[in-house]
C-alpha cells in the first residue's frame, strides 16, 4: 500500500514529502491560535480543491457548482445533529450519500443528454442555485436565517461529536487533506484514473479504446460530490453556522476551485499548494487593509492571481516549482 502510494516518486520527492509532513504535524505546537486558524482554513480549502480536482483535473468535467455539495454535506450532518442529536461521525454517511445522489442526477442528465463543456458547467451552476433557493425556503433547517450548531467550547476532544479544541480541527483538516491526497494518488495509478485521464484528453479516442465514458464520468462526479460533502460536514462543525446565501453561493464554488487552478490543475500537490498560497494571502491582505476598510481587496487580488496564472502559467505553480526543484517524474503524467 505505502509502496503503491509512493510509487515512482524519486528520492528528492520523498524527502520533500517527509519534510512537509513533519512541518505540518508539528505546526500546532509552534504557532499561535490565529495562525492555526489560517492553517486549518488552508487545509480545508486544500481538501475542497482536491475534491473538485477529481472531476475537473482528472476527468475534465468543469463544475462551477461545487458549493452545493459543501452545503448539502453541512446541512445534512448539521440538521441531523441539531434535530436528532445524531453525531456527525454517523451523520456524514447520509450527507455523503445525498451529495453523491445529487451528483449522480447531474451526471446522468448531463452525460445522457450529451451536455458538454461550458454547458455542463452551466448545468452545475443551475443546480447549485436551484438548491440554494430551495434551502432559503426550507424552514426545518432555518431557511435564509441559517442553521446554528450549539457552540460548546470543550477542552476535551470528542471526535464523535466533532467538538473540541482548534488543534483537533487542525489535525482533522490535515487528515482529510492527506486522505484525499492518498486517494487521488491511488486512483490516478489505477484503472479508473487512467480512464479519466483519457476522457479528459480526448473523449472520442477514449471511447474507441474500450472505455465506457458514461460510467467513468459518473464515477468522477459521484466521488467528487461525496468527497466535497465530507468537507461540508467539517464546515458545519468547525464554523458552527451555515446560511444558504453563503454555503451554496457561487462565490464559494469559485473560491474552492482557485486553489487547484493556481496550484496546478490535475496535479496531486497543486490543490494543496494553491490553497496554501491563497488562504494566507487573503489573510495577509485583510490584515494589511483593515485600517482602510477596503472590503473588495481580497477578491481583487484573488482575481488578479487567476488572471496572471491563466495568462502566463496555465499549468499552474506546482509543475513549475517541481521542475525547478527536480521533483518531477517523467513529464506529462500530470502528477
Amino acid at each position: 500500500m505505502i509502496g503503491r502510494l509512493l510509487g515512482e516518486a524519486g528520492t528528492r520527492a520523498r524527502i520533500a514529502l517527509g519534510l512537509a509532513a513533519l512541518v505540518l504535524l508539528a505546526a500546532p505546537a509552534m504557532v499561535d491560535d490565529y495562525l492555526l486558524t489560517v492553517l486549518t482554513q488552508s487545509l480545508f480549502f486544500a481538501y475542497l480543491g482536491q475534491s473538485w480536482n477529481v472531476m475537473m483535473g482528472f476527468a475534465g468535467l468543469l463544475s462551477l457548482g461545487h458549493a452545493m455539495f459543501v452545503g448539502l454535506g453541512a446541512y445534512v450532518a448539521g440538521a441531523l445533529f441539531v434535530h436528532f442529536g445524531l453525531p456527525p461521525v454517523i451523520g456524514l454517511f447520509p450527507a455523503m450519500a445525498l451529495a453523491a445522489l445529487v451528483g449522480a442526477a447531474i451526471g446522468f442528465l448531463g452525460f445522457r443528454f450529451s451536455i458538454q463543456g461550458v454547458y455542463f458547467a452551466l448545468l452545475t451552476i443551475a443546480f447549485a442555485e436551484f438548491i440554494r433557493i430551495l434551502f432559503d425556503h426550507f424552514t426545518w433547517v432555518g431557511g435564509s436565517s441559517g442553521l446554528f450548531i450549539p457552540v460548546d467550547n470543550r477542552t476535551v476532544n470528542d471526535l464523535v461529536h466533532l467538538r473540541g479544541t482548534p488543534e483537533m480541527f487542525y489535525y482533522l483538516a490535515l487528515g482529510l487533506s492527506v486522505a484525499a491526497l492518498a486517494l487521488s494518488r491511488l486512483l490516478l495509478a489505477g484503472r479508473l484514473g487512467h480512464r479519466w485521464l483519457a476522457i479528459r484528453e480526448d473523449q472520442e479516442a477514449a471511447q474507441a479504446l474500450g472505455i465506457d465514458v458514461f460510467r467513468a464520468k459518473m464515477a468522477a462526479v459521484v466521488l467528487s460530490a461525496a468527497m466535497t460533502s465530507l468537507g461540508g460536514v467539517f464546515y458545519a462543525f468547525y464554523f458552527n453556522n451555515m446560511f444558504p446565501e453563503q454555503i451554496f453561493n457561487i462565490n464559494l464554488s469559485i473560491e474552492l476551485l482557485l486553489g487547484p487552478i493556481i496550484g496546478g490543475l490535475g496535479t496531486l500537490i497543486g490543490p494543496i499548494l494553491g490553497a496554501f498560497v491563497l488562504t494566507p494571502l487573503s489573510e495577509l491582505l485583510s490584515a494589511l487593509t483593515e485600517r482602510h476598510a477596503l472590503i473588495g481587496i481580497k477578491h481583487f487580488v484573488y482575481g488578479l492571481c487567476v488572471v496572471l496564472i491563466v495568462v502566463f502559467l496555465p499549468g499552474g505553480l506546482w509543475p513549475w516549482i517541481a521542475r525547478r526543484l527536480g521533483l518531477d517524474r517523467p513529464p506529462g503524467d500530470g502528477t
Binding site: L197, P330, G332, D333
Partner: peptide
C-alpha cells in the same frame, strides 16, 4: 487523436487496460 497531455507510454497503457488484468 493522441492524449496530448499524457506520456506516450501512458497513452498506450490506457489502451492496453482494455484487456490487461492490471496496470
Amino acid at each position: 487523436k493522441p492524449f496530448a497531455g499524457l506520456s506516450v507510454q501512458r497513452n498506450v497503457v490506457i489502451a492496453a487496460l482494455n484487456l490487461a488484468p492490471d496496470i
